[in-house]
Amino acid sequence: MKQLLKKLSEAYGPSGREEQVGRMIRDELKDYVDEIYTDNTGNLYAVKKGTGAKIMVAAHMDEIGVIVTFVEEKGFLRFSNVGGVNPHILLGQRMVFANGTIGTIGMEKLDDIKKLTLEKLYIDIGAKDREEAVAKVKVGDIATYNRDVVEAGNRIIGKAMDNRAGCAVLIKAMQELTKTDNEIYAVFTAQEEVGLRGSRTASYRLNPDLGFAVDVTLVGDTPEAPTMDVSLGKGPTVKVKDASVICHPKVKEMLESLAEKENIPYQLEVLIAGGTDAGAIHLSREGIPSGVISIPCRYVHTPGEMVDLDDMANAVRLLTLFLSQPLNMQEIFPCYLS
């Protein structure tokens, strides 16, 4: 798990440019699934055929980044955000482009640091002038944090744990999943960070019986954290609600009772702000009952995102067990009213 997570976290894959991560995931899964394909939104599908319930599990593989909008005469790169990046966190960061070009983020002279905005920042790739800069980086190129993974005891620090941690969990679950009648679609989605876009088209394509997202969630166990009963290391969470989805009560209950039965530690999650792929999946076509398993993660959207390996291992267990059980959709979702 540790090796896989390190590889995925350090890979380059901002929203809309997920191919490098996709290839890595393909290599991990090609010996374990029946079919792998991509679509024109950038999603990667890994399919285990079956005759039972049709289940889609989404883990987004994109990460936040910055997109170059202008190259100045002196070779500095102006940029805009791809997903939720904060100028204060960007300041002083080392950024990397798809072709490996690395730069550092500098700031215009500023009297009041509170007034820092993205417009005051630029990337310096060491180019003398525009000509030298555009030989390496063009307008429209996207950079992500350049950051190696480090171990801190049982916890891992790095960039893009949101959501390569989820990708790693889904990969492991697909590898460990041996016996099941269910038809499982592991979808490594694109463009989640810019509006749940990959999962929207993927769920429309698949129209599954059940939808899941595996993503990271915020925690409430750090100093002056948001009010939230989720801690790092106390197990994966079963999501109740976030800004994008109210998880189907039945799916939530099934996850809870499975965790109780198998003695898997878990936490219930109510996330006040932010969304995840299930937000798009559950509204696809005539509606798809959806649930979310989250991995608690500190310092989300910074280059120092921290996750706990036990939480991830338990997420794999919970997901694998859920996907392996026989699921009779008529029994699980009878018309409440009949």
Binding site: D34, E35, Y37, N40
Partner: peptide, 10 residues
């Protein structure tokens, strides 16, 4: 090119 890649593995 409109087609996206599909691999039939098994």
């Amino acid at each position: 090119t409109l087609e996206t890649t599909t691999e039939k593995i098994k």
